[in-house]
C-alpha cells in the first residue's frame, strides 16, 4: 500500500532537464534513500516532494491526496536541510517551537512537546543556547527535532550528514536509524554516499542523469546491480565488455562462465573484486599483480590480465597472498558473475 507516490515526476529548466522521469511508491514507515552522484536529480526530486520546486510534469500523491500544487507550508512534511537552516536569531527551544507556533498550539503544550523532543534527541539542557554555540552534531539534532516535533507525515533529509566528520557521521547514522524505527516515520533521505545509503535504508533508489537507475533493497542492489553504473557506484566492480557465445561470455579470447538465462549479443560481464580468489595454477584468467594496497581489514590487488586490468579484494588474515610481479590465476563462481545487456541501463 503506497503511502507516498511519485508519478512520472519531471523537472525541466528550459533546455536543461534536472529530472527526466521519476516514479516511486513508498510504504508507510519505510526508510528510502535517494542515492546518486551530484547532478543526478536527487535533490530536485526531494525539493519537488517538499514543494519548493514545482514539477514540470507528474503528480505527487500523499496518503491518497494529490499534493502536487500544494504550497510547502501546507504539506506538513518535516525537512532537515543540508545546511540545517537553523534560525540563527532564535534559541534552540524557539527553533523547535516554531512549527508548533505556526500551528497555533497553546504555549503550555508547546513547551511540553519541545522539551520532550529535545529529550528524544538528547539535547535537554541546550534549550536556551543559540545555534552558533552548538557543535555540528548538536546542530543536526536540533534540525531533526525541529522537523519531527510537528509530527510530519513524511521526514525529508537532504544530505544531513554532509557537514559531519567521519566518526560523528557513523554515530549519527545509528542514532537516526534508531529514532526512525522508534517513531515509525516514513523517511526519504538524499545522499551521495553509497555506504550511508546501504546502511540506513530499507530501499535504495539509485538515480543517474535525472532517471531512476534501479530501486531495490541494499543487499539486492549490491548483489544484482542493474548495469555498469549501479555496479560501480555501489561498491567496486570489474566490468568487462564481452559477447555471448554459446553457454559462456567471450571477453577477448577468454571464455568466462555465467548464468546467461537466454541472453545474447553484446553484454557487460560484472564480477565483484571480493568474489574473486587466487589460484596458484590454472584459474579462469591469469594475470600479473601490478600493485597492491593495504586497507587494514583487506588487501586490494591491481592486476594486468588478457581481459584488461582487474581488481581483487582479499580479506586480511595474516600475510598477503601475492606481491607485485607475481603471476596468479583468478577464480570465481559462475553464479557470482552478473551479465547484463550492454547499454541496457547505462
Amino acid at each position: 500500500m503506497a503511502f507516498l507516490k511519485l508519478e512520472s515526476l519531471r523537472k525541466a529548466y528550459g533546455e536543461f532537464v534536472a529530472v527526466k522521469e521519476c516514479s516511486l511508491s513508498i510504504g508507510e514507515g519505510e526508510f528510502v534513500c535517494l542515492l546518486g552522484p551530484s547532478g543526478c536529480g536527487k535533490t530536485t526530486t526531494l525539493q519537488m516532494i517538499a514543494g519548493f520546486v514545482e514539477p514540470t510534469e507528474g503528480r505527487i500523491i500523499l496518503n491518497g491526496a494529490d499534493i502536487t500544487r500544494l504550497g510547502p507550508s501546507k504539506r506538513g512534511l518535516g525537512i532537515v536541510f543540508q545546511s540545517y537552516a537553523l534560525f540563527p536569531h532564535m534559541t534552540v527551544a524557539a527553533n523547535v517551537a516554531f512549527g508548533l507556533e505556526m500551528r497555533a498550539i497553546a504555549k503550555r503544550e508547546r513547551r511540553e512537546r519541545v522539551a520532550h523532543m529535545l529529550d528524544l534527541v538528547r539535547l535537554d539542557g541546550f534549550a536556551d543556547r543559540y545555534p552558533r554555540q552548538l557543535s555540528g552534531g548538536q546542530r543536526q539534532r536540533v534540525a531533526l527535532a525541529r522537523a519531527l516535533v510537528i509530527e510530519p507525515s513524511v521526514l525529508l533529509l537532504d544530505e544531513p550528514m554532509g557537514a559531519l566528520d567521519a566518526l560523528l557521521r557513523e554515530e549519527m547514522q545509528i542514532e537516526l536509524r534508531a529514532l526512525q524505527k522508534r517513531l515509525g516515520i516514513t523517511t526519504i533521505m538524499v545522499t551521495h554516499d553509497q555506504v550511508e545509503a546501504m546502511s540506513l535504508a530499507d530501499r535504495v533508489v539509485l538515480l543517474n542523469n535525472g532517471s531512476v537507475e534501479q530501486v531495490a533493497e541494499p543487499f539486492a542492489m549490491y548483489e544484482h546491480p542493474s548495469g555498469r553504473f549501479a555496479s560501480t557506484f555501489l561498491g567496486k566492480s570489474n566490468v568487462l565488455a564481452g559477447d555471448v557465445s554459446g553457454a559462456s561470455v567471450l571477453v577477448g579470447d577468454q571464455e568466462l562462465p555465467a548464468d546467461l538465462a537466454g541472453m545474447s549479443g553484446a553484454v557487460d560481464y560484472i564480477i565483484r573484486p571480493e568474489k574473486i580468489t587466487f589460484a596458484a595454477a590454472g584459474g579462469l584468467v591469469r594475470g600479473q599483480v601490478t600493485a597492491r594496497v593495504f586497507l587494514g581489514d583487506r588487501w586490494l590487488y591491481q592486476l594486468d590480465t588478457p581481459v584488461g586490468p582487474m581488481q581483487v579484494i582479499d580479506t586480511n588474515v595474516g600475510l598477503p597472498k601475492a606481491v607485485e610481479g607475481d603471476a596468479v590465476g583468478l577464480v570465481w563462481a559462475a553464479e557470482n558473475a552478473r551479465v547484463v545487456a550492454r547499454g541496457a541501463a547505462s
Binding site: A50, G71, F81, F87, F98, M102
Partner: peptide, 24 residues
C-alpha cells in the same frame, strides 16, 4: 534554506518575512 525551513514548518510568506528574514 532558513526561509524554506520556515515555510516547511507552516509559516506563510508574511510570517517568514517578519519572523525569519527581518530579524536576521
Amino acid at each position: 534554506a532558513t526561509e524554506q525551513a520556515a515555510e516547511s514548518l507552516g509559516a506563510g510568506p508574511l510570517t517568514t518575512l517578519t519572523r525569519i528574514v527581518l530579524p536576521q
